[in-house]
Structure formats: structure tokens, C-alpha cells
Simulated scan of single mutants.
Amino acid sequence: MPAGQVEEALGQVSPGRFDAYERLLHALVEGQVWMLLWHGQPGSPDAQYGNMDIEGLGYAPCVTSAHELAASGWHRSHEVVTGRQVAAALFPERWGLWLNPHAPGGGVGVPWADLRRVAGGLDRLPAGPLRLSEPTVEMHQFYALLGQHAHRTPAVRSLRRAWVQPALGSPYLAIGLELYDTSQQAVESVRLMMRQAVGVVPDGLPVSTVAMADAYDPVAMWMQANSRPFFDRDLYGAAPAPTAGYGYPPQPQPY
């Protein structure tokens, strides 16, 4: 990646410009950042990034070039890493990344949920902030068929649902899977279950699955807090859950 691509993308970010913010995330994947070390030297066991608290959320500060490092006035050590590397280190601890906090306007913060996307694949995870709700599209046949196949799939404990509207891209139906067993054989049985039911979904309506056990997935987090299962092995055959509202707290704004 050409030097300065992160800085170039950063310069285009402004409130409401989710397309520009998404380009910044793409630039971060292979682009370099200069991480500010509060303790230790690069590669040493006691190396520790600096930290910032923004509205109760933790961020590690960095700069985007040697020029910005000099402008920041930072006199302790630093290390140069790719955005993907630091994203993989930070997001599991729910730490975000703050770029050029010394710059006019205070720089740009990337929340941990977006670092998870940088680390895991921007094309694999939806672009936030997300709007989530109970689905309103009538798909009784699909839910009934899916519940029948789930009843015959021992690995499945419960199923939930959510309507996901990403900041960029098409909305889609997410099915939350709570499993007893995550072995390869169990996962294959769940994939078969989904294939057997998805044929009755209306044309053009995307369907995705979400592991309810993923403590970092914002869709799973919303479903856990706001959506009752429409299939529960212990309550199989119960009435559908009532419609819920937009109860999910929005992701921290990336600006």
C-alpha cells in the first residue's frame, strides 16, 4: 500500500460521510500506524500502548506518519505496525484506536467494533453503525420450516432473528444460532438446516447467520438483549415472540 494512504483517507472523513469512513477502514487494513508506547520498547514484554478515555470508552492513540509523530511532540517510544495487526490486538479487549489525537479537531476514533471488522475482514462483517429491529417482513413459512428443521437438528438450542440495516450496503435478515455443540459435524448439520429452509425466503432478501456465542458481534449482542427466541428447544411450539423496537444502543460515532 502506498505510503500516506491512511493519511489521505483520514483527511476525507467528516460527520455523516460513512463512505469516507469505510475507505479509511480499508486503508487501515494494510496501512501503517505509529503506535505510541507509554511503557517499554517495541517488542519488549513490558511494552504498553498509551490510552485515552472518551465518554467512558477506551482508545489507544496513534499517529499516521513520522511527520505526524514529530508534530505530536511524543518523546517516548513508538512502534510501527499495520492497522490489521493492531486491530487484532485491541478489539478483543474492547479497545478502539484513535488516529492523530494531536491534530486540529482532535483526530478520528475507530471503535473496537470497527477494529473487529478490520481484523476479521471488512467484506465479511456489516458496516456500522447498525440499525437493528425485529423483522417486519412476513415470512411465516420460512420461520415455521426453519423451526421444524431446527427441532430435528440436535445441535440447535435456540434461534433468534433481527433485521439489520448497515450504514452501507443492503439490509438483511440475521438468524441468531445458539448451539449446544460447535464441532465440525454439528456445524455442518446447522448449515444443512439453513439450506433446507432458505429456499422459501422471498427472492432478493439476503439471509445471514450469527453465532449467539460471539461476544463481540453487535447483532448477537442486540438479539441477546432485545429479541426472544422464535425457536427454543425447551419451549418448542410456543407462540412467536412479540415485536421489539430499536433497543440496541448505537455504536460510538467514529468522529
Rank of each mutant, 00 (worst) to 15 (best):
P206R: 12
Y246C: 02
P61Y: 07
M212C: 04
Q251T: 11
L205E: 01
Q5N: 15
L24V: 05
A239S: 11
S189G: 09
N51A: 13
Y49A: 15
S189C: 01
D181F: 09
Y255D: 08
Y216W: 11
L37H: 07
G96P: 10
S65P: 01
Q141C: 00
S72T: 07
E93S: 14
L122R: 11
L115F: 07
Q32G: 00
T209R: 10
Q85D: 13
E7C: 04
L177D: 01
L168D: 07
G247R: 10
R23W: 05
R233D: 05
G43P: 02
P154C: 08
R117K: 15
G106D: 02
I54F: 08
W163P: 03
P104R: 10
Q48T: 13
R124H: 10
L192K: 11
P242W: 07
M194S: 00
A186D: 12
R84A: 12
L37T: 02
V110R: 01
E79S: 07
M35G: 01
I175Y: 04
T82P: 01
L57E: 14
Q41N: 00
R228E: 14
P42S: 09
Q48W: 05
E55G: 00
P92D: 12
G147K: 05
A186Y: 06
A225I: 04
Q41P: 00
A197W: 01
A186E: 09
A220S: 12
P250D: 09
G237M: 07
R17V: 00
V6R: 04
W38E: 14
A144M: 10
G105T: 08
W74L: 02
L122A: 08
Q12L: 13
N51T: 12
R116A: 14
A127G: 00
G109A: 14
A20C: 03
T209K: 12
A215L: 12
P61F: 06
G199F: 04
V156S: 06
R17N: 15
A127N: 08
Q141D: 14
P252S: 13
A3D: 13
A220Q: 07
A215V: 14
M223C: 11
G83D: 03
V6M: 05
Q32W: 01
Q251I: 02
V86H: 06
P101W: 04
L173D: 08
G237T: 10
G83Y: 04
D53G: 03
W98E: 03
S208N: 02
H67E: 15
T82M: 09
G58F: 10
D232R: 06
Q196H: 05
E7T: 09
A211G: 07
A89W: 11
G58W: 06
R84G: 05
Q253G: 11
T209S: 13
D123Y: 07
V137N: 04
V210T: 12
P154M: 10
Q251G: 10
H151N: 05
A155Y: 03
R233I: 11
C62A: 15
Q196R: 15
P249H: 12
P2S: 13
S170P: 01
P15F: 05
S65A: 09
L99A: 09
R124L: 15
T136G: 00
E55S: 13
W112M: 04
L132E: 06
G109F: 03
F230R: 06
T82Y: 04
W98G: 02
E79G: 02
P240Y: 09
Y246F: 10
A27V: 09
